[in-house]
Design a protein around this nucleic acid. Structure first.
Lengths: 155, 155
DNA sequence: ATAATTGCAAAGCGTTTGCACCCTG
DNA sequence: CAGGGTGCAAACGCTTTGCAATTAT
């Protein structure tokens, strides 16, 4: 049935990184349905970010089918509530990922598509100066690095 | 060692921002068709990045209609050849923009969707260190800042 | 001349939505 | 028990593709 798999995100933050799926939902003020829990567990088990279609496929072959529309609605909802991060590095489809807390950026391998999180960044200082010159008021930023991970460099 | 997505484009001594559409195409080794020139002109006149559909609509109301499929094919081709920059900050559609040469990043206004280019960045230094710790070999990066431009802050 | 390019319409695909039924709180 | 959640299938919107006609070099 519904297991509380150990999150792939291990270190740091007691709050989120080690939370159960129930806790994550409760914290967001969302109902804990079978489907939502399954989507969260699946996402937690993903080595990299996943699309709605991929999550749907995983659930289907795991013998715990969830409607495709529900997967879409769930991921979108979780995204809105900050439970998962959503981003679109692929045109035509949205990717989702269960991230650690705090500001971080991603190192995305262009070969295996694995994702590594990097804590902190020094964009703000540079950005503050650049923005001031343009009279621009920054509210958020995304930095995504593509390249080859250690394993894929060997191959 | 890190990034040079744009350098491949130019051995040109002149600033691309001032090139004619014909020159841009010639430099990329592409045929100068009526449709491609029109697409480039339209893109050059855009205050911010535009989707294929938007370009199509502009051309249509300008009395110089170009087939929708052609607009898609042209933008994609120009993107491949580095004549235009393509990016997907909106899920479900690809945006295109005729950018200046050299490494830069964008300040995108979330209200009017205007785009300001910011020259240079200090990501590399930070990135080099972070990447080394992960054994990651960075090849390119994208940094996008969202916020409010000067005009929209007033309103 | 001839190989590339275009336009049209149909097909593809990821995503959203209407509605009746089900389940959580 | 009431209102949110779900599943199914149809609808959508953006993008791609097959093919015959057109055009750049």
């Amino acid at each position: 049935m519904i297991l509380n798999l150990i999150s792939a995100v291990s270190y740091s933050d007691m709050n989120a990184a080690q939370s159960t799926s129930e806790e994550r939902l409760a914290r967001a003020g969302l109902r804990a349905t079978r489907q939502r829990l399954l989507v969260l567990e699946t996402l937690a088990a993903e080595p990299h970010d996943a699309t709605a279609q991929e999550i749907y496929a995983r659930l289907r072959q795991s013998g715990e089918p969830v409607g495709l529309a529900t997967v879409y609605r769930t991921l979108s909802l979780l995204g809105e509530h900050g439970v998962v991060d959503e981003f679109a590095h692929r045109p035509g489809e949205t990717c989702y990922r269960l991230c650690g807390e705090g500001h971080h950026h991603h190192l995305v391998c262009s070969r295996c598509h694995g994702v590594a999180e990097v804590e902190g960044c020094e964009v703000d200082e540079w950005l503050g100066k650049a923005a001031r010159e343009h009279g621009f008021a920054p509210m958020a930023h995304t930095l995504e690095v593509t390249g080859l991970c250690a394993e894929c460099q060997a191959a």
